[in-house]
């Protein structure tokens, strides 16, 4: 059995049990009808059963692919930049914030300064025009 599957199974087992438990706290149905808690319990039960199945199953060869550490760092870095961008949502100007985010991320992913800067500007302008002007979405 590989570790990834154990972790997935354990996580889902806990989530399923939590759903069943919280479903018990929701208002029950009246007059023999299922109430608000019925489906959380049913889905939680199903999830816990499936997770238990995953945990006891004799797993075959580990199907997981290994990812080179450097690539994993790039994924983590991109995700961090994304959430940073999201946390800053609403501060400053949309265009400036977005172009800076794009440029930083492209640089982080190994693109050259000049093309990255040009592309960030064009993409930001395009999205701004499409959404703010074209679709009337106020991005500021």
């Amino acid at each position: 059995m590989n570790r990834g599957e154990t972790a997935t199974g354990g996580l889902f087992l806990a989530l399923g049990i939590a759903l069943v438990a919280s479903g018990l706290g929701l208002p029950p149905g009246v007059g023999g009808l299922p109430g608000a808690g019925f489906f959380p319990q049913a889905i939680g039960g199903l999830m816990a059963l499936l997770a238990a199945g995953l945990l006891v199953r004799r797993s075959g060869a580990g199907s997981e692919e290994s990812v080179p550490a450097s690539n994993l760092m790039q994924v983590a870095g991109t995700a961090a930049l994304l959430f940073g961008y999201l946390l800053l949502w609403g501060t400053g100007f949309f265009a400036a914030r977005t172009a800076a985010f794009l440029l930083l991320t492209l640089r982080f992913l190994g693109q050259k300064w000049m093309p990255a800067a040009g592309y960030s500007g064009v993409l930001t302008a395009f999205v701004y025009l499409a959404f703010d002007m074209g679709l009337n979405v106020s991005l500021e």
């Binding site: 889902f12 989530l15 399923g16 759903l19 199903l46 999830m47």
Partner: peptide, 17 residues
């Protein structure tokens, strides 16, 4: 990956709650 697929499906059902 039937078992994992069913788990993912139950997660979708749970999120829809």
């Amino acid at each position: 990956h039937v078992l994992k697929g069913m788990l993912a499906g139950s997660l979708g059902l749970a999120l829809a709650l």
